[in-house]
Amino acid sequence: MMRNDIRIRAIIWLHFLRLWRYKFSFLNNILTTILWLTIFVLGALMFIPSSKWGEMAPIALWGIIMWQFLSSSVWYIGGWTWFFISQGLVEEHLLTNTSPVPVLVGRAITGLSVTLAASLLVALVFTGLAGASVLIVYNPLIVLVGLVLLATMTISYALLLSAASFRIGIPGTILDIANFISFVLGGLAVPIANLPEQIRPIALAIPYAHPAEIVRYGVRGLEPYLGLANELIISTIFALALALSARIVFKRTMKYIRKHGVKAVGRM
């Protein structure tokens, strides 16, 4: 137990240290994120009469923040796996009886830092556009609970992708297509109630939709599609299920690696 404490300290220390040493990349990533978000938001705003911008802004902003949770987990954890494998770091960690999983999960530190910084800056842009502060929320605690549930899901999902890249090289763009789809269909950008009737069952089947409903309730007091209590229960179940499957899949992947050896993946 003691030893695990030290391990976790080591991993957190590692990721903060790397964050600092790669500060240019860090700043670049924040900037890149903001710019892409602005392009799409500007595009989407062109569909909406200016009079409705104020009402739209908070929902759009939080949709974007939640999307960032998703895509940063995938990119920072899933994407980094390539580096981790090719540098022989998987073996070096196994030799110390440390599973690669916590080290990969630790990348969420980097991802969340970028998300946080980018979200705040985009919030400023939005405040300018909408003319009112968009960061004032209705119930911060509920927002936090929703975000924690969402983070659990996205990190588990990222680990599943990362496990997959131990076996086959999955290019980043593929990872991102899944992100894109869940942005709209997964109810991140749009309350489920606003989706066309036919699409709602799909959205309900996508795990992210549920914490998203919780977050929107916390932000604006919008009644969740299935009610707050139900959404909390469903989100928890989905989060646990995803975390569990990530665990199982990774265990099997580690077995696979011990059987077949670690291979370098990607463009090599």
Binding site: A10, L14, L17, R18, R21, L89, T96
Partner: peptide, 18 residues
């Protein structure tokens, strides 16, 4: 088998902690 942007000492410290 090491992290590029860590010093030798830092790398050793990390693996020692593990």
């Amino acid at each position: 088998g090491f992290f590029w942007k860590l010093t030798g000492r830092e790398n050793l410290k990390y693996f020692g902690m593990l």
